[in-house]
Computed example of a mutant assay.
Amino acid sequence: MSWDIDSVATELLACEAERRDRVKFTDEWPELDVETGYKIQDETLRRRLERGEKLIGVKLGLTSRAKQERMGVKTPFVAWLTDAMILPADLPVPQDKLIHPRIEPELVFIMGDRLEGPGVTGAQALAAVSHVLGGAEIIDSRYRDFKFLAGDVVADNASSGAYMTGPVALPPESVDLSTEAVLVEVDGAIVDSATGASIMGHPAEALALAANDLAKRGLAIEAGWVILTGGMTDAVFAPPGSSVACHFTSLGSVFFNGGTAPEAS
């Protein structure tokens, strides 16, 4: 099949709706690069908004060395968040909507001011933040076995799925974000840990990168937006029946119930 921006956007949204994975597009369309991936990402966002979703922020992907090494990708990416991706704290992992969910801890910014690049520094980015929270993203991928190249993953909205934030919101100046630590617990056992320094040395650098990257597309980070700064550790699987928790030093804990397997169609 011959692929283009419109047909890839259609296929990605269909895979998401049908809980169906596929081989990466670059196997069949080697010219799918990062620039083209962003055009596809923007087209899928346009369709999400057209069907009633609301744009609420951005997420960064592959900002930590652990994630880059796992995925074989060296460059962080920016993607979109909509209100359909919010997972309330009292709900289980939505197994009936996701293909192969994995959970990764995140430091989450709530923007107080508009932030527009280019040339934004980490200090300038942090000054625009109202509050920081602990959180976690449930990443998912429309690609089989999470195998993709850079253009593929950008097109797929950086493996977006759902996200949850914790109970504690603090002004950024009251938290040392580079040393803020997280422990990842799976089924009662601690399996990984990291600090905010794993996110480009400081999560404010990821926020600055997002603002500067969006500026290349004539866009800015708006006041009130939610910013997921990227996974602090490698992601852990979240199968039905599992229990996953992310315990932060100052920002409380985020708990996930793996829920139940979806009924076979």
Rank of each mutant, 00 (worst) to 15 (best):
K67V: 11
D21T: 10
K67W: 01
V23G: 14
L49E: 05
E69Y: 10
P76R: 01
V23D: 15
T44D: 03
L55P: 12
T44L: 07
T26R: 15
K39R: 15
G37H: 04
L32K: 02
T75F: 10
R48K: 15
W80L: 07
Q41Y: 03
L32M: 02
L60F: 08
P76A: 03
A66T: 13
K67S: 15
K67N: 15
Q41C: 10
G37K: 06
G57M: 14
D27E: 08
R47V: 03
V78C: 15
Y38R: 03
T44R: 07
K24A: 13
V34M: 06
L60E: 06
R47Q: 12
R51C: 03
V23Y: 12
G52I: 03
D27P: 07
G72L: 10
M71L: 09
Q68C: 08
E50P: 01
R51H: 10
S64W: 05
R48P: 00
E43Y: 04
P30K: 08
D21Q: 14
P30N: 11
G57C: 14
D33Q: 01
K74L: 10
P30Y: 05
W80Y: 15
D33Y: 03
I40T: 00
L55V: 04
R22T: 12
L62P: 04
I56R: 05
E28I: 10
K54N: 09
A66R: 14
Q68F: 05
K24I: 01
R46P: 07
T26W: 09
T75A: 11
L55D: 05
Q68A: 07
L45Q: 04
G52Q: 02
L49R: 11
